[in-house]
Design a protein around this nucleic acid. Structure first.
Length: 258
DNA sequence: AATAGGCTCAACCGCCAGGGT
DNA sequence: GACCCTGGCGGTTGAGCCTAT
């Protein structure tokens, strides 16, 4: 047997409150206060409402000193900061924002702040990745390729829930056949990639395919390939399973490492 | 102007804790 | 200690509004 309902659902009104209902409830509470029994209250004042519904209406809408309307930047910051510390304890968060109800804050979080925060986080991550890549390119242009400089790209490796390094599955297209020197071929093999012979090339490019993890690419001295696979435009693991096409300018740094 | 899809927010639902008997 | 009742809370729903096509 389940829990007994708090009211006779067949005989109570549901849905939006009318101004008459609001004024009855408000008048009663202003005169008698809220001490007492919410369940018994609707009967006393002739409302066909559930006691819980009356309580909610009073707390979230009718009680004095409530703020309605837009949240300020400062309020947003307080909510975000508290949410980061204590999670979805809306009543505790509401206690820090005079005039706001837990319901208001919950709605505001679910409809706006959550998205706002996600977008902000994503932008920050992308900007960070872009920065690493741009430093990498700068080093390459100014000093030639120094493999040690690419160690910062380690943070672009992908790990699963068990902290295991995940391989990147990709086809890598080179623009010019002559760039595949024998030493290049050795690096391809030791990185766990497969060289597909030139007869399979599309539109003049040579295809190399296979599965590898990024650290093994780096260990072959292919820092540039690693950075290209993890380029800022493909900064998540799913995207790194896509094919990568090297153009001549991208290949410049790699020739330096040979 | 019509329609579909997205967004907002008031209201509801169900669970849990605490107090009274 | 067991049971019941109520208040409080967080999650979810859905009507109405808004916007894009």
């Amino acid at each position: 047997m389940g829990r007994a309902p708090c009211c006779d659902k067949a005989n109570v009104k549901r849905g939006p409150w009318s101004p008459e209902e609001d004024s009855k409830l408000k008048a009663y509470i202003q005169q008698h206060g809220i001490a007492g029994n919410w369940i018994a209250l609707p009967k006393k004042i002739g409302l066909k409402r559930c006691g819980k519904s009356c309580r909610l209406r009073w707390l979230n809408y009718l009680r004095p000193n409530l703020k309605h309307g837009r949240f300020s930047e400062e309020e947003d910051n307080i909510i975000c900061s508290l949410y980061a510390n204590i999670g979805s304890r809306w009543s505790v968060i509401a206690a820090q924002l005079p005039g706001r109800t837990d319901n208001d804050i919950k709605n505001h979080w679910n409809t706006r702040l959550k998205k706002k925060l996600l977008t902000k986080q994503r932008n920050e991550e992308e900007s960070q990745t872009r920065q690493v890549f741009s430093i990498n390119q700068k080093i390459k242009r100014e000093n030639g390729s120094s493999l040690q400089e690419y160690n910062s790209l380690k943070e672009l490796e992908f790990y699963d829930d068990n902290n295991q390094l995940q391989p990147v599955n990709t086809n890598i297209y080179f623009p010019q056949d002559q760039l595949c020197y024998p030493s290049t071929m050795n690096n391809i093999t030791s990185a766990g990639l497969t060289y597909v012979n030139q007869q399979e090339k599309d539109n003049g490019s040579t295809r190399i395919s296979g599965s590898t993890d990024l650290s093994s690419i780096e260990s072959t001295g292919w820092g540039d390939m690693r950075s290209l696979i993890c380029s800022p435009l493909v900064s998540d693991y799913e995207a790194c399973q896509q094919d990568v096409t090297f153009d001549e300018s991208m290949f410049y740094g790699m020739i330096q490492t040979q």
